[in-house]
Amino acid sequence: MEPTELERVARQIRLRDLQAVYEAGAGHIGGEMSVIDILTALYFRVLRVWPDQPRHPERDRFVLSKGHTACALYVALAKRGFIPEEEISTFLQPHSRLNGHPNNNKVPGVETNTGPLGHGLPVAVGMAKAAKLSGAKYHTYVVTGDGEMQEGSNWEAIMAAAQFGLDNLTLVIDHNRFQQGAALADTNDLAPLRPKLEAFGWDVTEINGNAMSEIVPALEHRGSRPHCIVAHTNKGHGISFMQDRVDWHHKVPSKEQYDLAVAELSEAI
């Protein structure tokens, strides 16, 4: 799929995500809007996956370490054919398999259970290491939030990935500059991320993480070391009044706000 088509799909995913969060009355919409372009590029261009064989041994691995943005993942999985699209309406409902954080035992396409932060990258390192041991050709991708990089477990994994020479691992940091309670800059500022990752032995690419023309080539980059994409994104991207506002981390839009957001996203489609 070409970038312009990917952008169209991303807007559709944003609209469905917005609707699901609004109807469920809960979700993490700010971080979902920031990461949706990356998810779209992965599922509709980059990942070698087979929805009818979700455990195919040669599938590329994808881990959404920022598991609180599960709704965006569910919408992407549904559009890609892993789960029925109509099932998105069950998000957060009693006994729905689509809870607030993804469950790999219930939702095909989910590789490991995330939710507590700082878990996905170590698991992704294990996935990439497994391929090195077995000779499997799959590639492993993991998306973390930027605030999540405050978890020390990530840096344990970053060291291990370099030590193991995992050139089959790509980490995307969704760098929207906001965590739950405040801006990273006002909390525990990790910026600039590039020199930190480079110092740990990784290749680093910095991109506009909401621009498909930059996301796709970065994801398709292959080198001789583990690769980190610092994806500069906007929290709430695509919805004007949410953009770069910390209070939209997990706020739910009112009816008026919802209608306005739908209008903005629909206009873009």
Binding site: P57, M127, A130, L133, S134, A160
Partner: peptide, 11 residues
């Protein structure tokens, strides 16, 4: 975590 990933990769 690495252990979990290794298992996911068939080890």
């Amino acid at each position: 975590g690495v252990g979990a990933g290794l298992a996911n990769g068939g080890r």
